[in-house]
Design a protein around this nucleic acid. Sequence first.
DNA 1: AATTAGCACTCGGTATTGTAGAGTGCTAAT
DNA 2: ATTAGCACTCTACAATACCGAGTGCTAATT
Lengths: 370, 370
Amino acid sequence: MNPAERKKQILRAVVEEYIHTAEPVGSAAIVRQYLTGVSSATIRNDMAELERTDYLFQPHTSAGRVPTQKGYRAYLDWLMERQRPKAEDMIELQNAILRGMPHWEKTIREVTETLAHLTGYAALSASPRLSKSKIKQIRLIRLDGMNLVLIVFADHDMVKHHHIRLEFPIDAALAEQVSHMLNREFANMRMEYIDEQSFVRMMCLFDANPELIAKVLRLIIKAIEEMTDVTVYLYGVSNLFTCPEFCDIERAKELYDFLDDTSKVQRLFMAAGEHGGTQIMIGSEIGIPELEDCSLVLARYLPERTVSGMIGLIGPSRMDYSRVTGLMDYLIKHLDRMICKTVNADDNQLILRGGGSFFRPLIRSDEIDG
Amino acid sequence: MNPAERKKQILRAVVEEYIHTAEPVGSAAIVRQYLTGVSSATIRNDMAELERTDYLFQPHTSAGRVPTQKGYRAYLDWLMERQRPKAEDMIELQNAILRGMPHWEKTIREVTETLAHLTGYAALSASPRLSKSKIKQIRLIRLDGMNLVLIVFADHDMVKHHHIRLEFPIDAALAEQVSHMLNREFANMRMEYIDEQSFVRMMCLFDANPELIAKVLRLIIKAIEEMTDVTVYLYGVSNLFTCPEFCDIERAKELYDFLDDTSKVQRLFMAAGEHGGTQIMIGSEIGIPELEDCSLVLARYLPERTVSGMIGLIGPSRMDYSRVTGLMDYLIKHLDRMICKTVNADDNQLILRGGGSFFRPLIRSDEIDG
DNA sequence: AATTAGCACTCGGTATTGTAGAGTGCTAAT
DNA sequence: ATTAGCACTCTACAATACCGAGTGCTAATT
């Protein structure tokens, strides 16, 4: 075997071995399990070289090697093969999808939970953000003078409802009138365009009872604004507590506090691209200090639609990328297929694509060959 | 001071000191800070006695004493004084209450979060269980053929809504008819009585389109059943990670896994009594192995109503009971007062009571006097 | 030039030992 | 009934020694 190719194989061996054992990998272990027929001294020379070029790292003089972030990245971009999911994993994912149907928002939750369960990492997902969705219909239901329910029916059968409790009673006629106006003003409008200005515009349409109307409208506008917030689902956080990298309580707490903060997790999703396919960010690529030694795997479900959302995994950088990418690709493909059956694709044509993954190539291929 | 009284004071001192330091309390520390003028040898003799009667425990020969569960219980029942909350704590609680108003379900969440923040323990609450609530009004709103929204308006202005996505379309007339029937059948009925039998009864009222009606009705019944589930809110779990008793990751994970399981936490609430006032359960009194070294403080908000719910705290047995009971009593009193202003008490007369606490007296008073 | 056997070296982890000090129980005196 | 005094126990911590895994380097081999 030529030296360049061998170095690749060594990097690959170190990454895979380290993923499974969480212990620094020595030259002997590689000879034993990955590259029989080569002397450990050769491996050592190559490893020293890989350390010089920053693919591997030695925690201390008499220890084996551990992949660096660059090492993981190279593994992902050039060395890894996607693993086709095991039959039972496919079945579990299929079942999760079916359990939620036809309410696919529930499907997302089921699938996220299953993903956490299958991988042993933390799984997270975000409901589609409705900002760019058009309102098809809006209803204000008056239960009694003090209690209203606002229902917004948007693109892709997205339905949001919100209970509004008033401090002063509203009569049926007025409520009916407001409901009418809302529909006339907001139908076919994108949800993100509903804001303080809409409030002012609406106010002009009424002349009687300005204080009451103002209060009601403010509550309605606020409710609609809240409806565009994405909901974050998080499962399997405690899986991370068993990873050796997070086994001390300080680190575990830090990680937990981050994940427990919905707004921070939302920002995670923001960082991801708009395109479909599985994206992987390693360590500092995520850009969040608390996740320095984590990897983030994210994919967009329904990537062709305005209502697409995200689903993903957080685990240690020492993540089983091969298995995880396989699972995610499989999942996304089937999610799209299933959801597409039930949802009225009324404004966008949905083109089913294969689950091709996207990795950012940060390292030139020749560097590792040289 | 007579010996019996002194023993009480010693128990009290050990509990209070241990609560603040989390370290076994020695005789010298007690002389220094609690019972000046008595020799440490005297304290030692009394402590030995308190250990024989199982109020204190010595981790090892040359260590100070730690309260046993019985010791904490005696402290709570006979020795402790409720602490009036600090002014700033009162203000924080008041603010939390106001932030949620007039939507008092939100108030409960705000208050729970504040409680976690103020105490440094985990705070938890349960939304009122609606099983015993009467339905005032029920609405089935048809957005389009495939999408319905079910709104249930129950006692005490409780409103629940649920989006139903159908697999086969329903026409407007039929939806209207179902909505009508629902109201006629279910109005003034307790939510817990809606079940499989109601389904059968409803089915008899329709003759056309049995398959579609059956599907729709099943979904509605299921939705109503789900509405009676209590929602659990949990804040400040990570506070527990900094307690020395949960600082090893194994224990922290065990605790977290328990709290993360909503159904398990629901069972916690079940264990609590129906009456108002602050209840405290220590260690094995909770009856849950995972919480052996925890204490649970629970109180019922709106105890006079059918829609009462629970709010409480989980912390180490070494909990600042004096402060916590004070906070809880204060909170409950003000919660009831505030909520009572906004809610139509249409079926129950609400009598405001003082925030008297209830402790189960498990130990006879004379035992410690002897 | 590439590979390898051999060997001295490094260093973390574990076990061992020693020590300081906190806290006790007991006894005899008050 | 209380207390001073003292011998005793036990943990926590630091210092030390030692084992073994794994390395880098050198010289021999292909």
